[in-house]
Computed example of a mutant assay.
Amino acid sequence: MLYKGSCHCGNVKFEAEGNIEGLVACNCSICQRKGALMWFIPRTSLKLLTPEEDQATYVFNKHVIKHRFCPKCGIHTYGEGTDPKGNAMAAVNARVLEDIELEAFPVQHYDGRKL
Rank of each mutant, 00 (worst) to 15 (best):
D83M: 07
N19C: 03
F105S: 06
E17Q: 05
G35F: 03
H67S: 13
C26I: 05
G81K: 01
G35Q: 06
E52P: 04
L102Q: 10
V96W: 08
E53N: 13
G74P: 10
T50Q: 01
L48E: 11
K47Q: 15
R43V: 00
Q32D: 14
P84D: 12
Y3A: 02
T82W: 04
G86Y: 04
G112H: 06
E21V: 08
G86L: 08
K4M: 05
N27C: 03
I100P: 12
I30T: 07
K62P: 01
I20G: 11
V92E: 04
E53I: 12
L49F: 09
A94L: 12
G22N: 08
S45N: 15
E17F: 00
I75W: 02
L37R: 07
C31A: 01
H63R: 15
S29Q: 07
V24D: 13
F40S: 14
R33I: 04
V12D: 03
Q55H: 15
P42Y: 00
P106G: 06
G35I: 06
P51I: 00
G18M: 08
A88P: 09
N87R: 02
P106F: 03
T50W: 02
G5H: 08
F60E: 06
F14D: 03
N27I: 02
R95Y: 04
L49T: 07
K4Y: 13
L48N: 13
A25Y: 15
I75A: 10
D111M: 06
G79D: 13
S6G: 11
F40P: 04
W39C: 01
Y3W: 07
N27W: 04
D83F: 06
I75E: 08
I100M: 09
M38D: 11
V59G: 00
C31I: 01
E101L: 15
D83W: 04
H63K: 15
L102Y: 11
W39D: 01
I20M: 10
A94Q: 11
L37W: 03
A16S: 13
E52Q: 13
R113D: 07
N11S: 13
R68P: 00
T44S: 15
V64A: 11
A88Q: 10
A56V: 06
T77M: 06
Q32A: 14
F14I: 07
N27K: 06
Y78H: 15
F14E: 05
R95T: 11
V24C: 09
L49V: 05
S29A: 12
H8C: 01
Y3E: 03
G81I: 04
E17V: 01
H67C: 11
I20P: 07
E52Y: 13
M38Q: 13
P71E: 06
M89T: 15
V96G: 07
E80N: 05
F40A: 13
I20W: 07
N27M: 02
P106M: 03
A94N: 12
I20D: 08
N19E: 15
T77S: 09
G5V: 08
P42F: 00
I20T: 10
F60V: 05
W39F: 10
G35W: 04
E15I: 05
F40T: 14
Y3L: 04
I41Q: 11
N61G: 02
C70V: 05
H109V: 08
I65A: 13
G86H: 06
K66H: 12
Q55E: 14
I30S: 07
H67L: 10
A91F: 12
C70Y: 08
R95W: 02
V92W: 05
W39V: 02
E101K: 15
R33L: 05
